[in-house]
Design a protein around this nucleic acid. Structure first.
Length: 571
RNA sequence: GGCCCGGUGGUCAAGAGGUUAAGACACGGCCCUUUCAAGGCUGUAACACGGGUUCGAUUCCCGUCCGGGUCACCA
């Protein structure tokens, strides 16, 4: 009984001690410039007219000028959900922290995402804003937030707090010492119940202040929300009087998020799991403002391995995971997208296997199939996905990509690639098409490395000549080969000649013959072609030699053979 | 430390109260083969631990451990 009485007293204390009239005065005093009433915004930003089941999603980056794979991961999910449902995908710039803002960051974010195929329907653009629910940069929406802050003050659900950083630090110290939860709440919230006179005096003195929520939550109670990815989430109610408006009148993330997601008529909020901890803040705000909460979808964060442990991707520590990194290396945007999709939706890979050739955009994406445990970024897998995608493209398509990519990311190679398109395309076309296309192309930089020997400007010997062939014999073989080489020979005829040449000098016509009876031979035909391969490509491993020579042509083939003869003669 | 979220092979991951616990990447072997890249076949390898509930638990519950996240007038 006494318990109950005490609780009731406490609850009563939680209501504002100011009278309605005082609160009204305070609201006017705090927000003299606010003329609109909250309801007016409901008309300014009316519910959207969209087909049933359409998702309205948003990406809310802060303009810090850096965007990494993790951001793309989320953006891709937002984009798919919106576009596959006939909905809207919005870019909203969360620039409420002017300290962190980097000039030009917004354009960079837009272009980076666009490069990887993520386009917005509405929101901030490089020129300005697009859409009827703007502005889409939060600092430009200050009046909207202030209108609601004003409204909450009037209702006794928000109040000015004049605490300085030092005072807050001191509170925290005392809480830590007393082993209490840190924060501004309950009886620790010392400006929660300032009298009107005290407030007036401080305002008069020009003290800076923030606006805090007067929380009515009770952490001993819980609430449950249905997360789009994780299912039901049960969390304690919030009791923190967290900051709504900072001293400069700009909202914190928490306040801006609730107001914007309501008035932009967002249906699904995809965000990283780092927001889970503050979900109670948001929940109380949605309840307090009487807004219908959207569906929360808390994604897992992408991790990387550091030593023995996993760690969340960090923009500061992991510049190599920045989106630009993959662009510079020349990964195909489609490959990065496809890889990310395999991580994003567990059934994508199987779908892709079952539906070869169908576009990623045809895949039915669902939040339910998104994972909730931390996924490690897997470069091997990205490379494999990339190989598969490249293998499915035509030489022309790869060429077009290389040209566009090298123009900005590999300027030193661009000229040579552009000089003779047909030549480059013939190279890219080796082993392409047909049932079993070659899969040795992965990304731009790697492709350049792979094809460099076709260009005299870049050609150099990288591997040793086969050691089982003495230099003298090698010279003889190369000379004789050169004298009989004819570009017009077809693949079969050409190889017969190589075999004949080998046999003449004591090499087995087939590797099997050699294996059976190694004593009888100096080696086998493969050794002879190895010699030719090093002479022509500078490498022990290469695609089909006959094709390489077809592309080099009679003259340059012979020139390279001569070059090798010269080099070997010196040994 | 408090609170929150997670934990199936090395990696990404399916899965359901009873399965021989999928698949992909990586790795090994074999085949093919003039090298390589592929391709085909094949192999190694997993339900964190301890208690319950149950005829039966990897699956449900509790505890432990481990990992991550978060505790700002940053998002």
């Amino acid at each position: 009984m006494r318990q109950k009485e005490k609780a009731m007293t406490m609850d009563a204390n939680r209501q504002s001690r100011l009278t309605p009239a005082e609160r009204d005065t305070l609201a006017r005093r705090l927000f003299p410039h606010i003329a609109k009433r909250p309801e007016e915004y409901e008309e300014i930003y009316p519910p959207r007219e969209l087909p049933q089941g359409a998702y309205v999603t948003r990406l809310g980056p802060s303009p810090t000028g850096f965007i990494h794979l993790g951001n793309l991961y989320g953006a891709l999910a937002d984009e798919r959900l919106a576009h596959q449902s006939g909905g809207v995908f919005i870019l909203r710039v969360e620039d409420t922290d002017n300290k962190r803002e980097v000039p030009g960051a917004v354009d960079l974010i837009i272009s980076s995402l666009a490069y990887f195929g993520v386009e917005f329907d509405e929101g901030a653009t490089e020129g300005g804003d697009k859409g009827n629910y703007g502005p889409y940069r939060q600092r430009q929406r200050a009046e909207l937030y202030q209108t609601f802050a004003c409204h909450l003050v009037r209702q006794g659900r928000a109040y000015p707090c004049f605490c300085t950083e030092e005072e807050l630090a001191e509170i925290r110290e005392r809480q830590t010492a007393a082993k209490e939860n840190p924060g501004y709440y309950g009886s620790w919230a010392k400006h929660r119940d300032l009298t009107m006179a005290e407030i007036e005096a401080r305002l008069e003195a020009g003290e800076p202040f923030v606006i805090r929520l007067r929380s009515l939550g009770d952490p001993r109670k819980t609430f449950t929300v249905e997360d789009g990815i994780r299912g039901p989430l049960t969390m304690p109610e919030n009791d923190q009087d967290f900051v709504l408006l900072k001293a400069d009148g700009i909202p914190t993330y928490h306040f801006a998020h609730v107001i914007d997601d309501h008035f932009m008529r967002i249906t699904h909020i995809l965000r990283g799991e780092e927001w889970l901890a503050t979900l109670p803040y948001h929940w109380e705000l949605f309840q307090t403002l009487g807004f219908e909460p959207p569906v929360f979808c808390h994604t897992t964060v992408l991790m990387k391995m550091e030593g023995e442990t996993k760690r969340k991707l960090s923009k500061r520590k992991d510049p190599e995971l920045g989106l630009d990194y993959y662009r510079q290396l020349g990964y195909l945007p489609a490959a990065v997208r496809s890889y990310l999709m395999t991580v994003l939706n567990s059934n994508y890979e199987e779908w892709q296997l079952a539906n070869p050739g169908r576009a990623l955009t045809e895949f039915p994406f669902t939040t339910e199939k998104m994972g909730s445990s931390g996924a490690l970024f897997d470069l091997d897998k990205l490379q494999n996905v990339s190989k598969d995608i490249l293998a499915g493209l035509s030489a022309q398509e790869i060429y077009d990509f290389l040209i566009a990519w090298s123009a900005s990311e590999a300027a030193e190679a661009h000229g040579l690639l552009a000089k003779d398109p047909d030549y480059v395309k013939r190279i890219l076309n080796i082993g392409r098409g047909g049932e079993n296309p070659r899969k040795d192309l992965i990304y731009g930089r790697q492709i350049l490395e792979f094809i460099r020997f076709f260009f005299d400007e870049w050609f150099s010997r990288e591997d040793e000549y086969p050691e089982q062939i003495p230099a003298g014999l090698a010279v003889t073989l190369l000379k004789e080969y050169a004298s009989t080489y004819d570009c017009a020979d077809d693949n079969g005829l050409w190889f017969d000649k190589v075999r004949e040449l080998g046999v003449k000098h004591g090499f087995a016509p087939k590797p099997k013959d050699y294996k059976k009876n190694p004593e009888a031979y100096k080696g086998h035909v493969g050794d002879v072609s190895s010699l030719l391969r090093v002479a022509l490509s500078g490498r022990r491993n290469s695609p089909d030699l006959w094709e390489i020579q077809q592309i080099l042509g009679q003259e340059r083939t012979k020139a390279r053979l001569a070059q090798a003869v010269e080099e070997l003669s010196k040994l």
